[in-house]
């Protein structure tokens, strides 16, 4: 059965943008292994030749008329922003300094 190392979990957490503490990492390794063991039973199901099903309703290209409808004002859209400036979301720096 698959086991996740502490490094694996740290890597997954970084992909998921969650800065886990050392204590959280230690705890989560064991918990995830238990869950992974249980969910790995899907590999025993008789799935040869079975089409994957992603959704209960097989829909493609749901479209609507291209019409302007009322939507949120800038003020409403920004109402929950941690920081806003000049009618825009204000975010921390997105580039490294050098």
């Amino acid at each position: 059965m698959s086991t996740l190392s502490r490094d694996d979990v740290a890597h997954l957490a970084s992909l998921a943008r969650i800065a886990l503490s050392d204590a959280e990492l230690d705890r989560m390794c064991g918990e995830l292994d238990v869950i992974l063991d249980a969910v790995a039973t899907v590999q025993q199901a008789p799935t040869e030749g079975v089409e994957p099903m992603s959704h209960p309703m097989p829909l493609t290209n749901v479209t609507r008329p291209d019409e302007v409808k009322p939507s949120l004002t800038a003020g409403e859209a920004l109402s929950g922003a941690p920081e806003a400036e000049s009618d825009r979301f204000s975010v921390p720096r997105i580039l490294d300094e050098d």
Binding site: L4, D8, V9, L12, A13, L15, A16, I18, M28, L32, I35, L36, V39, A40, V42, Q43, A45, P46, T47, V50, E51, P52, M53, S54
Partner: peptide, 26 residues
């Protein structure tokens, strides 16, 4: 979130998420 990130990651997708979607059909 971490479990889902793992199930969708390349190299494991077929064994986990892909397989789960086939079970869903069954």
């Amino acid at each position: 979130i971490i479990l889902g990130t793992y199930a969708l990651s390349s190299g494991y997708y077929d064994a986990y998420y892909g397989q789960a979607q086939k079970v869903r059909r069954l």
